[in-house]
Structures are given as structure tokens and as C-alpha cells.
Design a binder for these strands. Sequence first.
DNA 1: GATGGGGCTTCCAGTTACTGGAAGGTCAAG
DNA 2: CTTGACCTTCCAGTAACTGGAAGCCCCATC
Lengths: 147, 147
Amino acid sequence: MRIGDAARQSGVSAKAIRHYEMIGLLRPAPRNSNGYRSYSEIDVHELRFIKRARTLGFPIETIRELLSLWRDRSRPSRKVRALAEGHLGFLDARIQATEQMAVSLRRLIEACSGDHRPDCPILDDLSTDQGTTGTNRPGKNRRGPTR
Amino acid sequence: MRIGDAARQSGVSAKAIRHYEMIGLLRPAPRNSNGYRSYSEIDVHELRFIKRARTLGFPIETIRELLSLWRDRSRPSRKVRALAEGHLGFLDARIQATEQMAVSLRRLIEACSGDHRPDCPILDDLSTDQGTTGTNRPGKNRRGPTR
DNA sequence: GATGGGGCTTCCAGTTACTGGAAGGTCAAG
DNA sequence: CTTGACCTTCCAGTAACTGGAAGCCCCATC
């Protein structure tokens, strides 16, 4: 089948499929007489694997390793699990970080009247040093402050 | 003061400061005789504002608007709040999406023995069609399936 | 005076994972 | 023969910087 069908059947766009081929995630597809790429059911299966892994947020480089383990019938599941755990750690960290932002922001929004008046706790917070405190390292100006 | 000091005092890297200047988030800093950029306390204050907004995850384009509102002493807080709410929506959506990934992945990891054996629920899941179901739109192959 | 070490400048490349679009070839149907 | 849906390659752009190279400035020290 051609790339468009492989795309429809896998849920991966044709653009992405070509991209995956270019970065070596997929072996170059054989071409038929007119130069069109030709795909098999196996290729579609592989594309679905990639699609699902992307849905779980795995980065391409990790998917590369996952694919390699998938193809290796004698892989130890330990390796797969390790990759998954690493990614889970990343996801958890991201959730934490994003939640922290959301919590802070929500508090500010609740304190803001949000009407025609210019007073705004959100801007007040942004223009405050609080978030930056401790960031100022001593600094070694050998020359006095200019301007 | 020079860019390095402004960087230390604001917590924004010198590279980033130049970058902000280039994309027009900051007005071009005046240069002194030797061509070095020169910054004032006010500039540092502005940099801290940006830093804090970035910490809350605001994208640069939104920060551009926030800065403009900040400078406008007669802005209605409504506008600031609207920007913040928009961003909060984005953050919440991201948390949801990431948590969904984490939940699925955690379940798979727990089901995986993670030892020397090749059997692995994680790979099983990835190579399953479940995630892709419904993605196959009818498809209009005017030509029969090739290969 | 030469050297060393920061700090500064600009410019180019790379990161992540694609998507959009242009210019042009292929093929079956009307 | 034209139309239209495909396909091809190649270039650019996205977000927000960071890293690094090549080279200038300037102060302190040997």
C-alpha cells in the first residue's frame, strides 16, 4: 500500500512517516516503479506501535530503543521497564512542575477583581522580587556599576 | 551595569537577555563606548518580571502583552486576568493530558515483571491496536491495495 | 610590554517532533 | 485531454532558548 493508506491505517500522518524514515526510526520503505513508497501490514503495525508510544508521551529516542527491544524476542523485560520508569519519572516531574504553576496562578487570579480598575495582584506578583530572591549570587564586579 | 550583572541580578541569563532584545520583548539596550550593552535598575526590574512570568509558564507572546499592561497605568485588571485565565486553562489541560499518560504508563509498569524474561505487558500494549481504534477513517482507495 | 583571564560582541547551529507549503510527477476516471 | 487525488523532494517555521566559535576590550599582574 502507499503512504496515504499506511497513514490512515496507523493514525500517523504521511508527513510524519516520511520524517520517521528520514531520522532512521523506520527503515527506508521500498519504492515501486513510480517512486512511491510501498508499505506492508507489518509496517503499519510498527507505525501503530510508534503512535501508541507517542500517545504515552515517549520521546522519539526512547521509542527507538523500545522498537529495538520489541524486535528482540529475547529481551529482558527489565530493560523495557527501566525505559518506562524513566519516562514515568519525567511525566511525574512535569505534572509536579505544572501543578505548581497552576496553583500559584490560580491563587493570583482569585485575588484579582478582574474589572475596569487597574489594581491587579497578578501584575503585583510578577513585578515583585519574591520569586527571584536567592537568585542573586554575590557577583564579582571588578568594575563599579555603570550607568 | 553590563549584561552580566543584569543577568545575575535578574536571574535571566545573558544569552536570554540578548535573545529577548532580538525578538523585541525588550527595547534595545543603549551601548556604551566599547559597544557593551548598558542596563539600569529599571531594566533589571523588567527582567525579573519576565523571569517570574516564565516561572509561571507564560509563553513569551503572552508576556509581551503582560508587560504592555504592566506599563499601562490605566489598564483594566480584567485584561490581565483574562490572560492569566487563558494560561491557567492551558496549564490545566496539560496537567490532565500528562496525568493520563502517567496513569496508563504506571499501570503497565506495575504489570511488568521487569526481570530477565522477555514477556512484557508494556510492549504488548504498545503493539496492540486498542489505542488506534477509531482512527481508521473509511479511506478512499481508488486503486486496489498495492504490495 | 606582554600575558592571562574575564567579560563582552556577533553569528551559526542545534534542540523536539513534526507541520505547512511550494513545485512538480503519476495515474485513473470522466 | 483535463481534472483531481495522490505522490515526490526540499525549504521554512515552530518555542525559547543554549552552546560554541572567533574575536575585541580591559584590568591586573609578571
